[in-house]
C-alpha cells in the first residue's frame, strides 16, 4: 500500500499544528522549539521540521498529515515534505501585514507541486478588522491563472479542517 500524505503549509502562527491536532486520530508528533525572533511576540514555540498526524481509512490504510515549518528559511523542508504528496492546504494568517503577498509566496514556492496536484486556501483569524476581502484572494489567484477554493476557517474546528481536506479531495478528482 502506498503512502498517502496531505501537506499543510502556511504562514508562521497560522495554525498548521493546531489544524493537524484538530483532525488527527493520534496525538500529533511535533518538532516545536522556542522562538527566538520577532515571532516570539505572537507565539512561544514554532515548528522547525514538521508536524505529523494520521487518519485511518475503512480498510486500515493511513492518510498522513504533514505540517511544514512556516518560515521561508525552512524551504528545504517544504521540498522534502511534499514529495509524493496528494495535495496542499495553505493557511494564511489574515492578521499579518500582507496576507495576499503571503498567499502568493506559498503558491509560488509550491508551484511545481500544486501544478501536479491541487491546493486549498484556508484564511484564518478573519474576525479581525482590516483584512482584505475574500474577493481579493480570488483575484490574486486569478492573476496567477489559478482557481482554488478559498475558505474562511477556524482550524481549531475539526469540521473546518475536514472541509478543506474534502474540497482538496474533490479538486483532485474533478478539477
Amino acid at each position: 500500500m502506498s503512502e498517502i500524505k496531505i501537506i499543510i503549509t502556511g504562514t508562521p502562527g497560522a495554525g498548521k499544528t493546531t489544524a493537524i491536532a484538530a483532525i488527527s486520530e493520534t496525538p500529533p508528533v511535533r518538532t516545536d522549539t522556542a522562538t527566538t525572533d520577532e515571532l516570539s511576540e505572537v507565539k512561544e514555540q514554532t515548528t522547525v521540521a514538521m508536524d505529523f498526524g494520521e487518519l485511518t481509512l475503512e480498510d486500515d490504510q493511513k492518510v498522513f498529515l504533514y505540517g511544514t515549518p512556516g518560515q521561508r528559511r525552512f524551504e528545504f523542508m517544504w521540498k522534502i515534505l511534499v514529495q509524493g504528496g496528494l495535495g496542499l492546504i495553505i493557511l494564511v494568517d489574515c492578521t499579518r501585514e500582507d496576507p495576499l503577498a503571503d498567499m502568493k509566496m506559498y503558491l509560488e514556492n509550491f508551484s511545481d507541486f500544486i501544478a501536479e496536484t491541487g491546493a486549498v486556501i484556508g484564511l484564518v483569524k478573519r474576525d479581525m478588522t482590516d483584512t482584505p476581502p475574500l474577493d481579493e484572494f480570488y483575484q490574486a489567484l486569478n492573476q496567477q491563472g489559478l482557481m482554488f477554493p478559498v475558505f474562511e476557517v477556524d482550524v481549531r474546528e475539526q469540521g473546518d479542517v475536514a472541509l478543506m481536506i474534502d474540497a482538496l479531495v474533490s479538486l483532485l478528482e474533478y478539477s
Binding site: L134, D135, Y138, N142, G145, M147, F148, P149, V150, F151, E152, G159, L163, D166, A167, S170, L171, E173, Y174, S175
Partner: peptide
C-alpha cells in the same frame, strides 16, 4: 465556470456541491 467558490458558512457542503465546484474550477 466559477469565478470563486461559494462561501458555505455553517452548512457543510455535500459531495455533489464540492464535485461541481471542482469541475467548474477547471480552466
Amino acid at each position: 465556470r466559477l469565478n470563486r467558490w461559494p462561501g458555505f458558512g455553517p452548512v457543510r457542503p455535500s459531495h455533489t456541491v464540492l464535485s461541481l465546484c471542482s469541475l467548474l474550477s477547471r480552466k
